Measured scan of single mutants.
Amino acid sequence: VPQRAWTVEQLRSEQLPKKDIIKFLQEHGSDSFLAEHKLLGNIKNVAKTANKDHLVTAYNHLFETKRFK
């Protein structure tokens, strides 16, 4: 089981690129989880459509539901 890579403050910070969060989610989330949160596909394309709040919610949801690969 992966550990949380970032704190809530870090997740919301401008310093953390959306692409980093997407990469983490794609590496650790199950396909059904990723599909549900519309996070499947090319990281660049996902970054265009997903806002930061959406990614933070998905990140927290992944750990709450433990839907890891």
Results as ranks from 00 to 15, higher is better:
11 L>W: 02
53 D>C: 09
22 I>V: 11
44 K>Y: 15
9 E>Q: 03
42 N>H: 12
36 E>I: 10
50 A>Y: 05
61 H>K: 08
34 L>V: 04
39 L>I: 07
36 E>K: 07
24 F>K: 02
52 K>D: 03
30 S>I: 06
24 F>N: 01
21 I>M: 03
47 A>L: 12
17 P>G: 10
58 A>R: 01
24 F>S: 02
35 A>H: 13
48 K>W: 07
68 F>P: 03
17 P>W: 02
38 K>T: 07
10 Q>Y: 07
56 V>K: 03
33 F>M: 02
41 G>P: 05
16 L>C: 15
43 I>C: 10
20 D>P: 05
51 N>T: 12
61 H>V: 10
34 L>Q: 04
12 R>M: 15
36 E>M: 08
17 P>Y: 08
51 N>M: 08
34 L>S: 01
55 L>A: 03
27 E>T: 09
57 T>E: 13
42 N>R: 13
35 A>K: 11
64 E>K: 06
48 K>M: 14
67 R>W: 06
56 V>Q: 02
54 H>W: 09
35 A>E: 11
40 L>W: 09
19 K>N: 13
34 L>E: 00
4 R>E: 13
47 A>E: 15
9 E>C: 06
52 K>Y: 11
62 L>C: 02
30 S>C: 11
11 L>P: 01
28 H>D: 01
45 N>E: 14
8 V>H: 08
19 K>Y: 13
17 P>E: 11
48 K>V: 12
24 F>P: 00
3 Q>I: 12
1 V>T: 09
11 L>G: 01
63 F>H: 03
68 F>I: 04
44 K>N: 15
19 K>E: 15
37 H>C: 11
43 I>T: 09
67 R>K: 12
60 N>G: 10
39 L>W: 01
29 G>W: 01
56 V>Y: 04
56 V>S: 05
45 N>C: 15
53 D>V: 05
27 E>M: 10
17 P>A: 07
5 A>N: 15
61 H>C: 15
53 D>I: 05
50 A>D: 03
36 E>R: 07
44 K>E: 15
4 R>S: 08
58 A>D: 02
23 K>L: 10
43 I>H: 11
35 A>C: 15
4 R>A: 07
45 N>M: 13
46 V>M: 07
52 K>V: 07
2 P>N: 04
20 D>L: 10
46 V>D: 04
7 T>P: 13
36 E>D: 10
39 L>A: 02
38 K>H: 13
50 A>V: 14
66 K>N: 09
45 N>T: 14
24 F>D: 01
55 L>Q: 00
45 N>S: 10
42 N>A: 11
12 R>I: 12
16 L>F: 11
15 Q>E: 13
68 F>Q: 04
25 L>F: 04
48 K>S: 13
21 I>F: 02
44 K>G: 14
68 F>G: 03
66 K>L: 10
23 K>N: 09
32 S>M: 09
8 V>G: 06
65 T>C: 15
55 L>T: 02
69 K>Y: 07
2 P>K: 04
4 R>W: 12
40 L>V: 11
27 E>W: 06
34 L>M: 04
64 E>A: 08
45 N>Q: 13
33 F>P: 00
45 N>H: 13
62 L>N: 00
27 E>S: 09
30 S>T: 11
53 D>Y: 06
51 N>R: 07
39 L>H: 00
38 K>R: 12
11 L>C: 02
29 G>R: 00
26 Q>H: 07
54 H>Y: 06
44 K>F: 14
38 K>L: 12
11 L>T: 01
21 I>V: 08
7 T>A: 03
64 E>P: 02
25 L>N: 00
41 G>C: 06
35 A>Y: 12
23 K>I: 06
56 V>I: 15
10 Q>M: 11
63 F>D: 01
4 R>P: 15
30 S>W: 03
38 K>V: 05
59 Y>A: 03
68 F>H: 04
26 Q>G: 02
14 E>I: 07
18 K>S: 15
43 I>G: 06
33 F>V: 01
17 P>L: 09
63 F>R: 02
1 V>A: 10
23 K>T: 09
49 T>N: 07
10 Q>S: 03
55 L>M: 04
63 F>N: 01
59 Y>M: 03
24 F>V: 04
46 V>G: 03
